Computed example of a mutant assay.
Amino acid sequence: MLAAFGFEALGVVIGDMYFVDPTPLAGQETPERGVRLELRLIDRAAPRGSIYAGIPIAFTRPVWRVDLFGSTESPPGTLDRAHHHPRFNGWEPGRRHFVPELSADPLSWLADQLADPAAVLARAGIEADDFTEADVTGLAAAAPEIVAVVKRMLDGVRDGQLAPAPAEPVAAARTGWL
């Protein structure tokens, strides 16, 4: 499942994921599943055709990522691998940051982060000319709705409806939109 929120030059995308990493971190050798949220830059082009034509919209480079993941060997709903990536280098995320508050109460932590998008963008190293004040106010205002979508997806993962495991065992897998 994929959900998207678009503002002026920024957008939020949210999706469920199942992930098998062939080069896991120490202590994280089992597959993980959960919900990923990314703050991304948006490109909006002119309509291609008449005034009635669709407008090309692209959610481009991610600038911040939150992975609300749990090991597949943990009880469903356990987010023992919850972390975030405060910065990206191009398309590649920086290292995982494990924050006790994120693991203890992920939805409250996420709501707090989304309530102050300017701080998130500053930590991500995004220049002020890459986004607008409307992005900041729109994202902060939409934070409760964004968190509600994340909660619904986490509930779907916990209940086994989202982020399914591959049908056959695999050495590496990444399912989901993000």
Results as ranks from 00 to 15, higher is better:
residue 39 L to H: 10
residue 154 L to K: 07
residue 71 S to H: 12
residue 15 G to S: 07
residue 18 Y to R: 08
residue 159 D to Y: 06
residue 162 L to V: 03
residue 80 D to I: 05
residue 9 A to E: 12
residue 50 S to F: 15
residue 80 D to H: 07
residue 153 M to S: 03
residue 96 R to M: 03
residue 157 V to G: 00
residue 107 L to D: 01
residue 31 P to E: 01
residue 28 Q to W: 12
residue 124 A to G: 06
residue 8 E to W: 09
residue 140 A to M: 13
residue 59 F to L: 14
residue 94 G to C: 08
residue 58 A to F: 05
residue 154 L to E: 12
residue 39 L to C: 09
residue 112 D to F: 00
residue 114 L to I: 04
residue 37 L to R: 02
residue 10 L to A: 07
residue 162 L to Y: 08
residue 172 A to K: 15
residue 95 R to D: 05
residue 70 G to T: 06
residue 39 L to P: 11
residue 164 P to H: 08
residue 23 T to Q: 15
residue 141 A to S: 12
residue 137 T to F: 10
residue 46 A to D: 08
residue 29 E to V: 13
residue 30 T to M: 14
residue 178 L to E: 07
residue 131 F to S: 13
residue 133 E to I: 04
residue 23 T to L: 15
residue 81 R to L: 07
residue 122 A to M: 06
residue 131 F to R: 06
residue 126 I to W: 03
residue 31 P to L: 04
residue 56 P to C: 13
residue 7 F to I: 12
residue 77 G to D: 01
residue 27 G to H: 07
residue 74 S to V: 03
residue 93 P to K: 03
residue 123 R to N: 11
residue 53 A to L: 06
residue 68 L to E: 06
residue 67 D to N: 14
residue 91 W to S: 10
residue 7 F to N: 04
residue 116 D to Q: 11
residue 143 A to K: 04
residue 120 V to R: 03
residue 95 R to Q: 05
residue 102 L to Y: 00
residue 146 I to G: 03
residue 86 P to A: 08
residue 61 R to G: 09
residue 178 L to C: 13
residue 171 A to W: 14
residue 94 G to I: 05
residue 98 F to A: 02
residue 165 A to M: 04
residue 23 T to E: 15
residue 134 A to Q: 11
residue 24 P to N: 03
residue 112 D to E: 13
residue 95 R to T: 06
residue 103 S to D: 02
residue 110 L to W: 01
residue 105 D to I: 00
residue 41 L to Q: 14
residue 41 L to W: 00
residue 121 L to Q: 01
residue 56 P to N: 12
residue 133 E to T: 14
residue 79 L to N: 09
residue 130 D to Y: 05
residue 116 D to C: 00
residue 175 T to C: 00
residue 95 R to I: 01
residue 162 L to S: 10
residue 143 A to P: 15
residue 176 G to S: 15
residue 125 G to D: 05
residue 116 D to M: 06
residue 156 G to S: 09
residue 7 F to L: 08
residue 36 R to C: 12
residue 37 L to M: 11
residue 73 E to N: 11
residue 116 D to F: 05
residue 26 A to F: 11
residue 89 N to K: 09
residue 150 V to W: 00
residue 48 R to H: 07
residue 17 M to V: 15
residue 15 G to P: 02
residue 97 H to T: 14
residue 77 G to H: 06
residue 48 R to W: 09
residue 157 V to M: 08
residue 134 A to L: 15
residue 55 I to L: 01
residue 172 A to E: 15
residue 127 E to A: 07
residue 6 G to H: 09
residue 175 T to Y: 02
residue 77 G to E: 02
residue 109 W to G: 03
residue 37 L to G: 03
residue 29 E to W: 03
residue 43 D to V: 14
residue 149 V to Q: 10
residue 122 A to K: 06
residue 160 G to L: 13
residue 168 E to M: 15
residue 173 A to R: 07
residue 57 I to V: 15
residue 126 I to D: 01
residue 22 P to E: 14
residue 40 R to F: 03
residue 158 R to V: 11
residue 35 V to F: 06
